Computed example of a mutant assay.
Amino acid sequence: MNKTCEICSKEARYKCPTCMIFYCSVPCCKIHRQNKCDVLQRDEEEEMANLIVKRRKIETMTESTVPEDKLKLLNSNEEVNNLLTNSHLRNLLVAIDKSDNAEEVMQKAMQEPIFVEFADACLKVVEDKTEVEENS
């Protein structure tokens, strides 16, 4: 997620605790403070947070993105839950999640039979039956 400094438009690392704008450095913070930042009203803050979440979802949507309602089906799938009792599989998933290069780590994980079995089980749950039949 790229955050942009509201003062100089560089990459921002910090957020003003008062008004929640992003800034990149002490000099930009000082400029911002000189302009007397205002506290966002609670409703405005929540509305802004909702817009940010919505924007992130849109930005990360691709043609292969699985809809949220189908992802929720994974939670109640017995096969998926049984596979998740395997500590080696859980460790692989954690490694992928924490990795800076998840694609590379996932390629290595695809060499593990338990990971392939898990991926197949997940795909069975989230893919439309019509899509599966068309691809067969």
Rank of each mutant, 00 (worst) to 15 (best):
V39I: 09
C16F: 05
N50A: 13
Y23D: 00
K3S: 12
K10W: 07
R13N: 10
Q34F: 12
D43H: 03
F22S: 15
I21W: 05
C5E: 01
D43F: 03
D38Y: 03
V26R: 15
K36V: 05
V39W: 04
R33C: 08
N2A: 11
E46D: 13
P27D: 08
T4F: 01
I7R: 04
C37H: 15
T18A: 03
C16H: 05
M20R: 05
M20C: 08
I21Q: 07
E46Y: 09
N2H: 14
K10H: 07
C16E: 05
H32L: 06
K3I: 08
C24G: 07
E46P: 03
K10I: 06
I21P: 01
A12L: 07
C37V: 13
E47L: 11
Y14L: 15
K15H: 02
Y23G: 00
C28P: 00
L40K: 08
A12N: 01
A12W: 02
R13H: 15
C8P: 02
E11S: 12
T4V: 15
Q34D: 13
S25V: 01
T18Q: 03
K3R: 15
C29H: 04
K3T: 04
K15Y: 05
L40C: 07
R33T: 12
A49D: 09
M20H: 12
R33A: 14
K30A: 14
Y23R: 00
P27V: 03
